[in-house]
Design a protein around this nucleic acid. Structure first.
Length: 394
DNA sequence: GATCCACGGGAATACACGGATG
DNA sequence: CATCCGTGTATTCCCGTGGATC
C-alpha cells in the first residue's frame, strides 16, 4: 500500500467520530499478523509442515474448526510468515528477473474458496500466489493458465503448499476438485484444506482448532480494541459481556464490536454506548453467515445487497423489492430478481414466506432478509467498491 | 512497433416451464 | 383454470488478452 493511500484511509477512518482509530484493526475480515492465544495450534500446524524445513513436500494436512474459531486467521498468518522466510527474498528482488530459476523455491499460497468457483479462477489464484508478475484475470483460456502453472512448477525443487480456505462452503471449489485441477503438477503441490470439517474421504492428517474459550475471546477483543479504538471507548466489563455473548465465535464478537463502533461514529458519539452495542449485536444474525461471504460477492451483487439494506424490505414481496432495487441501479428488475433468488439459495439472504392477505390468485410470494451483519457490510462494502481493485487480501 | 481482431470466461439477461394457490 | 412465483438454462453482452497483421 502506498503511503498516500495509507494516510487517506487513516483520514477517512477518523471522519465523523472520535471512536475509531483504525478500521483495519477492528474489521472482522482483516486478520492480524500475530494471532492471539493460538500458540498450541500454530505449533501443531508447524509440526505437520515440518518436512518443508528439510526441503521436502509435507503430506497433506487439513485445518478444521467451528465457525469463528480463527482457522483462516491462523493459516493466513502462518503462511504469510512462512512465505517471507522461504520465498521472501526472491519476491522482493524479482520485479523483472526470472527469480530463482536455479535454487529451490517453496511457496505458501492461500486460495480463498469464497472467491474461487471455477477452474479458471482457481488457476488464476494459485498462479498469483507463486508469481511476481500479475496473472491475467480474463482474456485467456483455462488451458493457457494450466500450461503456465505447469511451466512454472513442474521442475525440480519447486514446491507450493496451497491452503484452500473455506473449501467446504457452498458454491466454493471443494478440495477434491482442487486436487483434480492440480493433478498435472501433483508432485510439486501439497494442499491444506481449511474449513469446518475435513474433505470427504480425507487421507491426510488433521489439525483441530477448538472454539475460543471466554477468556481467550476477551483477549482477542481487547487486542483489537486497544489498537482499533480510541482509548477509553470500551470498558472491560463490556468486553467480557461481548465475549460471553459471542460464545466462542470470534467473527460474531468482532462483527458486533465493529458494528457498534460504526454506529457510535455515525451518531458522532465520544464512546460506544450500550445502545450501540445492543443494536450491533441484534444486527449479527444468530444462524447467519460470515460477513466475508457477502464481501466476496461480485460488485453488482454487493450493490444489490446494499440497496436491499437501505430499502427496509421487510414484508415486501421479492418482485416488488427487485423492482425497487432495479430502480436505483443499472440492472434490470428481472436480473435483480434472479440475483435475490440466487443469493437466497447460497444462504447469504433468507427467504421468508409472506402471509398474503391482499393478492387473490397465484402462488404466495416471499420476502427476503439479510443473514449477515448489515452494519458491518455496508461499512466495508462501501469502501471496497471505491478501491475495488486494491484489496485482494481475503 | 502499432493496430487489429478473434478468443475465452464470466456476468447479465431473456425465456420457458413447473409448481403452488385460490 | 387462471395466475403468479420460483428455478433451470440458453443466449447475449462485455471486455482483457495476446497473437496476427500490417
Amino acid at each position: 500500500m502506498e503511503l498516500a493511500e495509507r494516510i487517506a484511509r487513516r483520514r477517512s477512518s477518523r471522519q465523523g467520530g472520535r471512536v475509531v482509530v483504525d478500521r483495519d484493526h477492528l474489521s472482522p475480515v482483516v486478520h492480524r499478523p500475530e494471532p492471539v492465544g493460538r500458540g498450541p495450534v500454530l505449533e501443531q500446524l508447524l509440526d505437520a509442515l515440518e518436512p518443508v524445513f528439510d526441503g521436502e513436500l509435507p503430506p497433506p494436512v487439513a485445518v478444521v474448526g467451528p465457525p469463528g474459531s480463527g482457522t483462516s486467521a491462523i493459516v493466513t498468518a502462518l503462511f504469510d510468515a512462512l512465505n517471507d522466510q522461504f520465498s521472501g527474498s526472491t519476491r522482493s528482488i524479482g520485479t523483472t528477473t526470472r527469480a530463482g530459476s536455479t535454487g529451490p523455491v517453496t511457496w505458501f499460497g492461500t486460495v480463498d474458496g469464497r472467491r474461487v468457483g471455477s477452474p479458471f479462477s482457481f488457476y488464476q489464484a494459485v498462479l498469483s500466489a507463486i508469481s511476481n508478475e500479475p496473472v491475467p484475470e480474463s482474456g485467456i483460456g483455462t488451458d493457457a493458465l494450466r500450461k503456465r502453472l505447469r511451466d512454472r512448477l513442474a521442475r525440480p525443487n519447486r514446491r507450493v503448499i496451497v491452503a484452500i480456505d473455506h473449501h467446504d462452503e457452498p458454491e466454493t471449489l471443494d478440495a477434491g476438485r482442487a486436487r483434480e485441477l492440480l493433478a498435472p503438477v501433483d508432485e510439486h503441490v501439497t494442499i491444506v484444506p481449511v474449513g469446518q470439517r475435513e474433505p470427504d474421504d480425507w487421507k491426510g492428517t488433521t489439525v483441530s482448532v477448538p472454539a475460543y474459550r471466554d477468556h481467550e475471546l476477551v483477549d482477542v477483543i481487547t487486542d483489537r480494541a486497544s489498537t482499533g479504538l480510541a482509548a477509553g471507548t470500551l470498558d472491560h466489563d463490556t468486553v467480557r459481556d461481548l465475549a460471553a455473548w459471542a460464545d466462542g465465535n470470534a467473527h460474531d464478537a468482532l462483527a458486533a464490536l465493529f458494528g457498534a463502533a460504526v454506529l457510535a461514529s455515525e451518531a458522532d458519539a465520544d464512546r460506544i454506548e450500550r445502545n450501540h452495542l445492543e443494536a450491533a449485536r441484534a444486527d449479527v444474525p444468530e444462524t447467519g453467515v460470515h460477513v466475508g461471504r457477502a464481501l466476496a460477492l461480485s460488485e453488482t451483487r454487493q450493490q444489490v445487497l446494499l440497496s436491499l439494506i437501505e430499502l427496509d424490505a421487510a414484508d415486501r414481496p421479492i418482485r416488488e423489492i427487485a423492482t425497487a432495487i432495479a430502480g436505483r441501479s443499472s440492472l434490470t428488475a428481472g436480473t435483480v430478481k434472479r440475483f435475490l433468488y440466487e443469493l437466497a439459495d447460497r444462504g447469504v439472504i433468507e427467504r421468508v414466506p409472506l402471509s398474503t392477505s391482499d393478492r387473490g390468485s397465484g402462488r404466495q410470494p416471499s420476502t427476503v432478509r439479510p443473514l449477515f451483519p448489515t452494519v458491518v457490510f455496508r461499512s466495508l462494502a462501501a469502501t471496497s467498491v471505491q478501491s475495488a481493485d486494491r484489496n485482494d487480501s481475503g
